[in-house]
Design a protein around this nucleic acid. Sequence first.
DNA 1: CCTTGCTTTTGATACAAGTCAAGACGTATA
DNA 2: TATACGTCTTGACTTGTATCAAAAGCAAGG
Lengths: 192, 192
Amino acid sequence: MDLSRHIAQKFSELSSPLSDAALDKIASILVRTEVKKNTLYLKEGEVSKYIGYVYKGMLRLFYYKNKKDLTEHFACEGTNFFSIESFFRQQPTHLMIEALENSVVYGLPHDELLELAAEHYEIEVMYRTLIENSLILSQQKADTLRFESANERYRRLLREHPEIIQRAPLSHIASYLLMTPETLSRVRASLV
Amino acid sequence: MDLSRHIAQKFSELSSPLSDAALDKIASILVRTEVKKNTLYLKEGEVSKYIGYVYKGMLRLFYYKNKKDLTEHFACEGTNFFSIESFFRQQPTHLMIEALENSVVYGLPHDELLELAAEHYEIEVMYRTLIENSLILSQQKADTLRFESANERYRRLLREHPEIIQRAPLSHIASYLLMTPETLSRVRASLV
DNA sequence: CCTTGCTTTTGATACAAGTCAAGACGTATA
DNA sequence: TATACGTCTTGACTTGTATCAAAAGCAAGG
């Protein structure tokens, strides 16, 4: 299918370009899922089977801590997402994935991916590169959250991902930015 | 050399066990370096060539932000460390690595590692697994730093890595725990 | 049009941690 | 012994953000 081919290409964009054969292989294992607004793509306790690619819509990754709903990540159109610990170790997840809008996700299934990676080294390299990039991003995110004030964190999000601010509820943005909804409200008021 | 074999095994411990042939290959590319106390294993602006393994001693990874010296990680005996962004992308690093004591490091060189990984799939898997584990740790660390108070962060370090508290200067421990030396001093006083 | 229930804003207060400044302590040097 | 220097501690004050509580805004249903 042509669309799957296109999605496969998206997965490969981070590393060196893949051969047509490899792209076809990846396209052949992709699993398309429609996720309705406010429903879960991954529930707590399940094992995360896919690395997801957001073809349409928007999702958030979140978990509960002391009864509080904390958003760890927003997955926008055209980006990848996955529940790191659960996917790598194939263990039950504490991280849930929920659609903020009606969304379409293409998933790269764990077992099939590993099989392909073992057969085609370029796919293995693509997979490894994807993980490397996630690690770099994870570090960068930790660094910025560490040293910026609530105000700066909001302004950074506004600058780098205005679509999140437009499309996600403020309560989720607040927990993503590590502040209370009250503080977020005051920060926003101070910028007008 | 038998010692290198042993170190190679250490690298492989995170993934499934490696064949003797693979262990020998890894052992053959390891580079031993003695790092004297207070000297740098990796300087700002250099390209990080190695994933390091601390055979003896202790090092810290740090960088400058607004003229402040910030410790990002302590590498203790028996553990791995590397400058993530610089190593993966083979770019100049902003992260420096310094010995806190006279230390001995075994380094797995980037280019040779990638060559071996391309030849021996089990080595590639070991490398990938090492990255996966780093990513899991990076996430976990971000999570704990996020939601714990200065007091709790110190107590966690005391519980999980007492050797760091005994062997590293308090100023570095303070920046590692994301607090000022004054706050660290007060936290310590409050626990006696 | 008025409920009901959410989300967001505003206000008052509390507290953890940062800052600035001074003092104590320890170790090495003269 | 004295001096100097770095490290750590203590004190007084400030500040950003959380908390608790109430009000305002807004959408959906009767």
